[in-house]
């Protein structure tokens, strides 16, 4: 690795590709579509490197580009879909199994079924670990809006995954099952 001079743009972008892919997959729910989003993002970023202010957060800058690429793709698809009187398959409500076994696949489906702006907010805060201020900038909205979107997203996920808490609290069995949930999937 060379030091001293600022890193070549190529290296700079390269560093953020894993984050961009993770963001794109979380947003779109599909790996191949996600990689197309990342590709378009990289091309756009490359063309606009001059507008990136050095010393600021490049990851946030790239996420903003990817997010905008994604939104325009959604809009384009929506128009196409309306023409054919179809529906977004990814927006079809998910009916989760009532068996208490919540693996990542169920979670992924529930996440994909969220309204776009809620999913985006939740991913930026809960997965990409941006601050609320950064997330607000990326999404082009107010900080309070991000907070309320994240809250609504969490509530909606809990409902879809049958984790909603009644007045008496969640069942002890469910509560116990939640503990070691991550990594307990049977592949």
């Amino acid at each position: 690795m060379s030091e001293g001079v600022s890193r070549a743009p190529r290296d700079e972008l390269l560093v953020h590709i894993p984050s961009l892919r993770a963001f794109a997959v979380s947003l779109s729910g599909q790996l191949d579509r996600a990689d197309d989003l990342v590709q378009e993002t990289l091309v756009k970023a490359w063309r606009n490197l001059g507008s990136f202010t050095e010393g600021t957060n490049m990851r946030a800058w790239l996420f903003t580009i990817l997010r905008n690429v994604y939104i325009s793709e959604i809009r384009r698809r929506r128009r196409e879909v309306q023409d054919t009187d179809g529906v977004f398959s990814e927006n079809v409500a998910v009916a989760p199994q009532q068996n208490g076994h919540m693996d990542l696949e169920d979670f992924r489906k529930a996440l994909t079924a969220l309204p776009e702006e809620q999913r985006e907010a939740l991913i930026l805060i809960g997965a990409a670990e941006f601050s609320y201020e950064e997330a607000a900038e990326i999404s082009g909205c107010a900080v309070g809006t991000v907070k309320s979107r994240v809250n609504r997203a969490r509530t909606a996920l809990a409902r879809r995954l049958n984790l909603e808490v009644g007045e008496i609290g969640i069942e002890p069995a469910l509560k116990a099952a939640l503990g070691p949930a991550v990594g307990s999937g049977t592949g």
Binding site: L104, T155, L163, V165
Partner: peptide, 22 residues
């Protein structure tokens, strides 16, 4: 909408797990 902290933590872990995987 008050979520049980365990439920919220669970959602956070699932979210992060899928993300970190990629």
């Amino acid at each position: 909408n008050k979520l049980d902290p365990d439920v919220q933590a669970h959602i956070g872990r699932q979210l992060r797990a899928g993300y970190v995987d990629i």
